[in-house]
């Protein structure tokens, strides 16, 4: 078990000598990502406030960085990298499919309700 760890991240770009070393490496990576998020969140550069696909570019960056963080937590801290492909796919793709489905439905519906308030004949605020 102990020697079954895959000790590389970034498709082998960075290789670690031991599992302990890999853990610290991943911690540094996650800390850097969090620091970038916080700095962007505080300063909110104007260049990133343009709208891309219905949402601010800055928000897309936040979401992508979050998914990157989630990937490393699952793959290295939860040892998903070392599990059998069957288990990995059963867990990851089930969750990804259902979450994407739910988020899509609810956000589209929320946007529709907003458009009814904004342009329809229903008044909420008297």
């Amino acid at each position: 078990m102990a020697d079954a760890h895959k000790l590389e991240i970034f498709k082998g770009l960075i290789k670690f000598k031991s599992n302990t070393q890999k853990i610290w490496g991943v911690l540094i990576l996650l800390s850097i990502i969090t620091a970038v998020e916080v700095v962007l969140g505080i300063y909110k550069p104007d260049a990133l406030m343009t709208s891309v696909l219905g949402m601010k570019l800055l928000n897309w960056i936040f979401i992508i960085l979050t998914i990157v963080k989630a990937y490393y937590i699952t793959w290295d801290f939860m040892h998903m990298r070392d599990e059998a492909p069957g288990l990995r796919r059963a867990v990851v793709w089930t969750a990804i499919f259902l979450i994407c489905y739910l988020v899509f439905i609810l956000l589209v519906e929320g946007g529709y309700v907003e458009s009814v308030y904004a342009s329809g004949y229903i008044k909420r605020d008297f």
Binding site: L102, V103, E114, A118
Partner: peptide, 20 residues
């Protein structure tokens, strides 16, 4: 994870509803 994403998606729903 699905429970939590249900909550967060509901948050997104309400936020999109009152986006302005």
């Amino acid at each position: 994870a699905l429970t939590f994403s249900g909550f967060l998606a509901a948050y997104g729903f309400s936020r999109f509803k009152f986006i302005d």
